[in-house]
Nucleic acid binder design. Structure first.
Length: 432
RNA sequence: GCCUGAGUAGCUCAACGGUCAGAGCGGAUGGCUGUUAACCAUUAGGUUCGGGGUUCGAGUCCCUGCUCAGGCGCCA
């Protein structure tokens, strides 16, 4: 008899195996019972027939409740009546842990969001969370593979930072031995240093925004992937972005079929995600919004409704590029064709999942950068090291940032970003 | 921060200003040989979010505080 896990059960068809795991559900009839076992790698139905497993084990099984820890043994059989295609004809049962006195809070029925999030440490065991977070894991692996295969060097940006790239109102301040330190809201500026040292770099870490955003696409702590490439321009970044997104989607489709099925994700949308993506200018996007019936003017940014109108014109993610400088940060390179515009791009995911990528070509001329910093009210002293990058070895370069959780939410098709991360941090949630 | 809505059993929800606040799930007990959130029977389980008010009478109406949800703004 072999010890195995549910994720590999197909390789043991017809054989006796032993599994350790937890009771997900138990249904008993007079002389037959069905036990759904979960072991972290999957879910499988175990069948107990009183006449075959014997009175002693059958009576023991009747004491089982959700989340009891057990070891079962039995023969693996293919059976179309069983969810998952395989089931275990049980021959023995051993109880490893049973807690009595309080009921397990999470049932196989509807619960409120607040209740579930208060019990997030237990909710992780449920099937939907199992599927979502395993897909997140695959996406993370695909991201690292994508950049590794393209010879990007991982240069971790710091989490504690002395200054902010995009204003200080949305920063979490901490006490750093008597000084103010802020939790990073972007690793980009450090990647610019990295790109000039290593040519192609990226960082992948948590970022923090103290915005009081209360929507289904905001977290206060989220993970971001930020590549930066020396001698690259805006078009290079759009090409890299679309290759990147297609690579990640392709990987999930290839490796996570079961999980997508659990989530009832319509995969035909995802199969359609192939490069190239449409690239429209900010001006064209504004026209689309106006045609869609909203009175947006040049110089305004896209709100939720405006973004929705743009994305509904396309089946795939769509690039919007060349925004007005007035609504974008200081470090973006000017459009040589029109000085009021910058060489930036946003990638908008389909179906209202919002902006998943924001990127730009960076300003590399020392004097013009200083001028833009002055206009933005930033002190050159605070950014002395960033300014240094424009003194020695300055070159055109570009990069972007991809929000991991928005990408996970879009690919898995879940309603709200809060379940795209194991332990979400939102405006009014710090626990568990 | 703004707008709208909600808070009743462990959970999900009912209950016209008027008798003892009900049901399903979960728990307990019993029954049932192919269940898919199994089913059937019996049973235990309540500070109706906190504070104040109106009323003969408040879960229900009013004021106030707290919490949550949906949406907006800000952003990835």
């Amino acid at each position: 008899m072999n010890d195995t896990v549910i994720g590999h059960i197909g390789g043991s068809a017809g054989k006796e195996v032993r599994l350790k795991g937890w009771v997900y559900n138990f249904r008993s009839s007079g002389k037959i019972a069905f036990l759904i076992l979960r072991d972290g790698t999957g879910f499988i139905q175990c069948v107990l027939v009183k006449g075959e497993i014997g009175e002693e084990y059958f009576e023991l099984a009747k004491t089982l409740q959700q989340e009891d820890t057990i070891e079962v043994a039995g023969k693996v059989a293919e059976n179309p009546r069983s969810p998952g295609g395989y089931e275990i004809a049980m021959t023995s049962l051993r109880i490893i842990n049973q807690f009595r006195g309080e009921e397990y809070p999470i049932q196989k029925k509807d619960h409120g969001v607040d209740f579930l999030l208060n019990n997030r440490h237990l909710w992780l065991r449920s099937k939907m969370q199992f599927a979502t977070l395993r897909i997140r894991d695959e996406i993370v692996k695909a991201i690292r593979d994508f950049f590794y295969e393209r010879e990007f060097i991982l240069i971790d940006s710091p989490i504690f930072t002395p200054t902010a790239p995009e204003g200080t109102s949305s920063l979490f301040a901490t006490d750093y031995f008597g000084e103010n330190a802020f939790l990073s809201q972007s690793g980009q500026l450090y990647q610019e240093a990295g790109a000039i040292a290593f040519r192609k770099t990226y960082c992948f870490g948590p970022t923090f925004r103290a915005e009081k955003s209360k929507t289904k696409k905001h977290l206060t702590e989220f993970w971001m992937i930020e590549p930066e490439v020396a001698f690259a321009d805006l078009d290079d970044m759009m090409t890299l972005s679309e290759d990147f997104v297609c690579y990640v989607v392709g990987r999930v489709l290839e490796k996570k079929k079961e999980e997508l099925k659990i989530l009832e994700r319509d995969t035909s949308d995802l199969e359609n995600i192939k490069a190239p993506f449409e690239r429209i200018t900010y001006k064209q996007a504004v026209e689309l919004v106006n045609k869609g019936g909203l009175p947006m003017k040049f110089g305004e940014d896209f709100g939720a409704d405006e973004e929705d109108i743009v994305s509904r014109n396309f089946k795939k993610p769509v690039f919007i590029h060349r925004f007005p400088r007035s609504i974008k940060p200081f470090y973006m390179e000017a459009d040589p064709e029109d000085g009021d515009l910058v060489l930036n791009m946003d990638l908008i995911a389909p179906a209202g999942y919002g902006e998943i990528i924001g990127g730009s070509q960076r300003m590399y001329d020392l004097d013009r950068l200083k001028e833009e910093m002055k206009k933005a009210g930033l002190s050159e002293k605070d950014y002395h090291w960033y300014v240094d990058l424009r003194k020695w070895g300055s070159c055109p370069h570009a990069g972007f940032g991809l929000g991991l959780e928005r990408t996970v939410a879009w690919i898995t098709g879940i309603e709200h970003i809060r379940t795209a991360i194991p332990f979400p941090r939102t405006i009014n949630r710090l626990n568990p």
